[in-house]
Amino acid sequence: MPEGDTVYAAASRLRAVLEGRRLVSSQFRIPSLATADLSGRDVVAVRSRGKHLLIDVDESTPGAGDAVSVHSHLKMEGVWHVHPIGRRWRRPAYRARVVLRTETHEAVGFDLGILELLADPDAALAYLGPDLLADDFDRDEAIRRLAADPDQPVGAALLDQRLMAGVGNVFRSEICYLRKVLPTRPVGEVDLGPMVDLSRRLLWANRLRSARTTTGNTSPNGRMWVYGRQGQLCRRCATLIKRGELVSTGGERSIYWCPRCQT
């Protein structure tokens, strides 16, 4: 499931082949951008903001138009693939939403949940809370935002990207477990500093991994403490892991917890 670490890794792959290079062609395969053309323009930066990915394109050719950013959000199924030109795509062509080509490589965005061109991406994403994977992550601001609604369940607060950007459904279950906190516990009863610190450590540790893990074990059945393990034994106390639904931004989302380890 794409979360802040997944988007950070995608930005790193894209940066390696796009940043500082000129686009020889672009194809936007959605109706709203069908006539957009970024060919002949330079990619000046590739960056992630929480779960959002931005490819900043300059006005490198006179008359080509103002600088813009290709903004994408992976949602549940999206992915960016990068490879040398001529290599066979790993997903069917009909699922491609955008193709950006340089002289040597192409970046293909498949099944993107959001794809748009933004003239001022920083303003458009100003609502986001501090980015957990940013070099200048503002810990105090993240704590302040999380603490603003002390009655909100902490499991819901962790998913609210307006408070702190990057945590998704997988990490919020794991963070609550590792802090021994029930996801339904009100924010006002939680020690937020260590929870924010743990969130940053987990995302940072996984930002470039091919297999996400919160246990330190990268084997397929050993990567998670509780997420996706409903009915299996807790790795600490052997109690059966439970699964439920918790209302968060965007609706009800699955949550996993150990009824003995978490209080």
Rank of each mutant, 00 (worst) to 15 (best):
L146M: 10
R47F: 00
R88A: 11
G4Y: 09
R91T: 06
G166I: 00
L198P: 06
G4N: 08
G155C: 05
G231T: 05
P186F: 04
R101T: 14
Y8G: 10
R236S: 07
Y8F: 15
L100G: 09
L115H: 13
V7L: 04
D135I: 04
P2S: 14
R139Y: 07
D191Q: 07
G231K: 00
S199Q: 04
S60L: 08
S39V: 11
T6G: 11
G113Q: 01
R212P: 09
R236F: 07
G188I: 10
A124E: 13
A16S: 13
G113V: 03
G166D: 11
P2I: 06
A36E: 13
A96V: 04
D135P: 05
H105L: 00
L115T: 13
L233Y: 02
L182C: 04
D37M: 04
H52Y: 09
V70Y: 06
P92L: 00
M164R: 11
M195T: 12
L38W: 00
V68T: 06
L117Q: 05
W225P: 00
S210Q: 15
E103L: 14
A96N: 01
V68C: 03
P220T: 12
D37F: 01
L54M: 00
L115R: 15
V247E: 15
D5F: 01
D191K: 05
R41H: 02
P2E: 14
D136E: 00
A11T: 11
W257Y: 03
A238S: 15
W204R: 15
A67Y: 03
S60G: 15
V17G: 10
Q262S: 03
G250S: 04
T263W: 09
G231S: 07
A11W: 09
S25K: 11
V17R: 08
P150M: 06
G251D: 01
L117S: 13
